[in-house]
Design a protein around this nucleic acid. Structure first.
Length: 597
RNA sequence: GCCUUUGUAGUUCAACGGAUAGAACGGCGGUUUCCUAAACCGUAAAUAUGGGUUCGAUUCCCAUCGGAGGUACCA
């Protein structure tokens, strides 16, 4: 049983004994004592005071007395302004550490075959352009969320829906056809997704030129946008695609292959992966069927022009188009089709969509529609809605070339990590392979941690030149702490120093040591909280706090040079478990830890 | 216009309705004969504004002022 729940129970017993009133253990406000005050755990008395009709101070004094006398765990207490601060006996902390030491996967629950099945959709790229900074946030959040859900005892299926059809895809195909001169990734040496993305940009440039020309000839702007030859050709290409025109399909296939080869490289570099990939080109037809069935069941309405609509006015929303009059599908149709296929493939208990907050409305609607169509998880689907990544100059715009490319960014991080490491002389003892592995881990950790430490719901600012640091509240700081601990453990092992407690501790531990145990002990609750609130940031901030706390301990106390054997063994045990938790926590963020740096 | 969301040091981020709002970077000043100084310590610096609810408000409610997103037969 956790310390917190023991205390809840004890306080509840105390009030029963002292005032003959049972209080609800769950409503008790139990929190960690603030650093400035003596004690480990604090109970807030104000709510109780009201219930028990006692002054907070008197109540705290009475309960504190009772607990100290009746509970061995409580060694001391003090009362300040209606806060009851309890000190937990040292032996109890040491026992807690032993228990943690005995569990290699402390804080991480294992899923069984009966555990809930959670499907997490993330990444969701378009095949007309390479991944950029916004995708990086999505991928890191999705991957980390999957790890966190696993650690909370869920079975997880990671899925990706690739948006590989539609007018935007035709734009890059058309531009390649017109201006590409047969260029391929092989012939140009350009990574496939970038090559295709270049033609998407090319299309936009040429399209704008055509609009401008038309406007100069006196065509109104709105009309010019609709009548520019390039857009008409792109629309024609989409019709040919839907009609399975062999030539268009062939082009589509080969350009998509280039893109997928490029994406694979990026995903691998980023350290993310998927259990199952869906393609919209294969799901949109199912979506159409679902919508037609919905019409047959009377859930949706077909209008005179044959377009299909869902009337959501009863749900406080408006009417939503599901099929165009020409029978083609829209975004919503495809998501319904994808949901259907997934439902057929897996016994999903919970579906989580990792998609930006610009689509809040879309998912609100999707949830209602899936529910109407009878998907049992439709109503409770989770839209993990994360904020945008902005640059100091403002929003990123693909077409204006202000995006930060994912591949470039990772490359830059690793290069910077290498420079810094070399300046500090950290790689002198390493083989080139080790050095490469270390700088890759550091560079990626800097990037990943920077993104993940921010509350996912909020928009965040990323300055490519300044944002990534290796000091302070950063990934490399946590990695450094870990590497440092491993170094101590290696030295202990080389010197044959006893690292397991054999004799009981006789001297009192320092506050720093106690608070470190307490922090390590909070890991399971932190993992749980991160799972409940879908927030990798909670794990990130916890890991930082732990690393910081450890560094202070490391600075103030000797480990290997401590002469008292029991104390030395204790400190090694504390170090070992701090490292273990740091690694577990960072693993949940998808961040790899170097053994030395 | 309507809907959603957001506003905390110079900057980037924290804070289940709880104690003196916590970090990092940057600034200023320190620590290395000692287990990794990518570390540690000190210092100055913030809750947009005005009301309300509460023993207690950065947090909840209302208004005002800013930012972002949505309100497409785009995805």
């Amino acid at each position: 049983m956790s310390i917190e729940s023991i205390i809840r129970k004890a306080v509840s017993q105390a009030t029963k004994h002292l005032y003959a009133i049972s209080i609800d253990e769950e409503t008790l406000q139990v929190q960690k004592t603030k650093k400035e005050f003596e004690g480990d755990v604090t109970i807030v008395m104000f709510p109780l005071a009201k219930q028990l009709r006692q002054s907070p101070a008197a109540l705290a004094q009475a309960i504190g007395d009772y607990l100290q006398q009746n509970d061995e765990m409580i060694s001391r207490f003090n009362v300040i302004q209606g806060f009851l601060n309890l000190s937990i006996a040292q032996d109890y902390w040491v026992e807690t550490l032993h228990a943690i030491d005995a569990q290699p996967t402390f804080g991480l629950k294992q899923a069984t075959k009966d555990s809930p099945l959670v499907m997490i959709e993330y990444s969701s790229p378009n095949t007309n352009k390479p991944l950029h900074l916004g995708h990086i946030r999505n991928n890191l959040l999705g991957y980390s969320l999957a790890e966190i859900m696993k650690a909370n005892g869920n079975r997880v299926v990671k899925t990706n829906i690739v948006n590989d059809r539609g007018i935007h895809i035709c734009k890059s195909m058309l531009a390649w056809q017109k201006y590409g001169n047969g260029a391929t990734p092989e012939s140009t040496g350009i990574k496939g997704d970038h090559l295709v993305g270049d033609y998407y940009v090319k299309f936009d440039q040429e399209y704008k030129n055509q609009i401008q020309e038309l406007i100069e000839k006196g065509t109104p702007a709105d009309q010019a946008k609709k009548e520019a030859p390039l857009i008409l050709e792109a629309q024609e290409m989409l019709r040919q695609w839907e009609n399975n025109d062999p030539e268009v399909r062939q082009l589509w296939e080969s350009m998509n292959q280039w893109v997928y080869a490029g994406f694979d490289i990026t995903y691998k570099a980023l350290g993310v992966n998927f259990d199952k990939i869906y393609y919209e080109s294969k799901t949109y037809l199912t979506g159409k069927q679902q919508v037609e069935e919905g019409v047959a069941k009377g859930i949706f309405q077909k209008r005179a022009d044959t377009s299909v609509w869902a009337d959501l006015t009863a749900d406080g929303l408006d009417e939503k188009l599901l099929l165009r009059a020409d029978g083609t599908s829209v975004y919503m149709t495809q998501d319904i089709g994808t949901a259907k296929l997934r439902y057929d493939d897996y016994a999903i208990d919970k579906m989580i969509y990792v998609v930006g907050n610009e689509q809040n409305y879309h998912f609100q609607v999707l949830s209602i529609l899936l529910d109407k169509l009878g998907f049992k998880w439709g109503k409770d689907l989770v839209h993990f809605s994360y904020g945008m990544v902005e640059l100091p100059e403002g929003k990123m715009k693909s077409r204006e070339g202000t995006v930060v490319d994912a591949d470039d960014l990772m490359e830059e991080m690793i290069t910077t990590a290498r420079q810094t490491s070399e300046e500090l002389g950290k790689l002198d003892q390493c083989t080139p392979e080790e050095a490469a592995s270390i700088v890759r881990k550091i560079g990626l950790a800097a990037l990943k941690y920077f993104i993940l430490k921010v509350d996912p719901r909020k928009n965040m600012t990323f300055n490519p030149k300044e944002s990534v640091d290796f000091n302070g509240n950063t990934g490399p700081f946590i990695q450094y702490t870990y590497a440092r601990i491993l170094s101590v453990l290696r030295k202990a092992s080389e010197a044959n120093i006893q690292a397991v407690a054999t004799a009981p501790l006789t001297q009192p531990l320092s506050e720093k040591e106690i608070s470190l145990i307490q922090l390590v002990n909070e890991f399971p609750a932190t993992v749980q909280e991160a799972g409940n609130s879908y927030s990798p940031a909670i794990i990130a901030n916890y890991a930082y706090e732990l690393a910081k706390e450890y560094n202070q301990f490391y600075h103030d106390y000797s480990i290997l040079k401590e002469e008292n054997e029991a104390l030395r063994a204790f400190r090694l045990e504390l170090s070992r478990n701090s490292a273990k938790i740091l690694q577990s926590a960072m693993h949940l963020l998808g961040i790899e830890m170097p053994e030395r740096m």
